[in-house]
Amino acid sequence: MEYTLKEMMTIMAAREIDNGDIVFCGTGLPIMTAMAAKCINAPESIIFFETGAIDPKLEEIPMAVADPRVMYGAASNSGLLEAFATMQNRKTGRRVIGILGAAQVDRYGNLNSTCIGEYAQPETRFPGSGGACDVASFVPRFLVFMYHEKRKFPLKLDYLTSPGYLDGPGAREREGLMPGGPTAVVTNLGVMHFDDDSKEMYLACYYPGVTPGEILDNMEFSVDVSRAVEAMPPTEVELTILRDRVDPHKLVL
């Protein structure tokens, strides 16, 4: 069955969600991923938003985390403080997985969503942290969506907005952060994971028709490709659910 790149990225990320996860997500591919996982491989996962909506019905796709569509049929509608408390709560926090996007990611999975250039008067200003730094600071694991381009995978970030593994093993603990960090970076060419010991990004799989060399050509830093395999493309079942139930009006995909 034919599939688009966005469908491939959504399914690759959705497969990283486990049943029972509490999924923190933003809009676009992150919400697609959360909804796909709930419909396909993690029916008991729970979707929540930093605005304070927990487990809404989501009969239509929200286009912002404050979209009124996140409020309908929710278990509770509260506010920002309650949402961020859910990520730190001793009972619920350890079940939360975040899904984030960024302008840059480095080899340790640190993210920049603030600016390119000098902070005081940048060449390009992005929206800023929002809740990204909070979720990256608090929860045990998060996924990152990126497009593979050299400038988006730089040797050094222009601004470190959200903490990954900082400068390597033990760094989160030294800073006083909760145990956690990114587990996967899903891009338009493949999926990167992080080595348990070095905390460095490595290539876990590349999409059909893509070579590991092509991926390295689109990064400033180099990563281990020795463990990389060809990704399993979306199945007919996954694609059918994605198209018929998750985004029937093609708002995102």
Partner: peptide, 29 residues
């Protein structure tokens, strides 16, 4: 961050000078 701003408003509402968080450690924020 969003949580930091929410805490800052809460501190203002409570009449305390500041509130603590574990968000932001190790970052440029």
């Amino acid at each position: 961050t969003n949580y930091q701003m929410a805490l800052r408003f809460l501190a203002g509402a409570m009449g305390v000078p500041f509130l603590p968080t574990l968000s932001g450690l190790g970052t440029d924020i």
